[in-house]
């Protein structure tokens, strides 16, 4: 995963703008390219986001404020750091935003192994983490966050 300055790649397919974020979302992040497209729907891919800091959050909220009211934004492959910001920072997502897929963190105490599992939002029930086995020892991996906190962005069914 890249840890350099944020690179934004966009691809317009019909009415949808697919946006890949690569690198660090910080004070140097420039989202003008996205704003200028003025698309009705955006698909944000966070798979290669390395870090997001408080200055980056400020830039992000500015972006969402400008496009969030008009456009539908779908979030894909949200890394753990993005999920944590979604949960804490008011305005990180809007009412028109939809989290589609995100990573869930797991940890094996025996093997000292970490694992990030990509899941669909709709697969999460009652804000409970799915059971995952360790690839090395096959024992049940511990969900590496507080469930009710980590899945708080998912509306209760």
């Amino acid at each position: 995963m890249s840890s350099e300055k944020l690179v934004i790649n966009t691809q317009v397919v019909g009415n949808v703008c697919k946006v890949d974020f690569i690198g660090n979302i910080n004070e140097d992040a420039d989202f003008e390219k996205i704003i200028a497209l003025k698309m009705p729907e955006y698909h944000f891919n966070f798979d290669q986001v390395a870090m997001i800091n408080s200055c980056g959050i400020r830039e992000w909220i500015s972006l969402i404020t400008k496009i969030g009211t008009q456009a539908t934004i779908k979030y894909f492959n949200c890394r753990q750091i993005v999920v944590e910001q979604i949960n804490v920072v008011h305005g990180f997502i809007t009412d028109k935003s939809q989290i589609q897929t995100f990573y869930t963190p797991y940890y094996c105490d025996k093997c000292n192994l970490e694992k990030q599992v990509l899941v669909e939002v709709k697969s999460i029930n009652n804000r409970k983490a799915p059971a995952i086995k360790c690839d090395k020892c096959s024992s049940k991996m511990e969900f590496d966050a507080i469930e009710e906190h980590y899945f708080s962005f998912i509306p209760k069914k």
Partner: peptide, 11 residues
């Protein structure tokens, strides 16, 4: 551990 997360507003 229960996060106090039922109230939130902008920074």
């Amino acid at each position: 551990l229960h996060p106090l997360m039922d109230s939130n507003g902008p920074r």
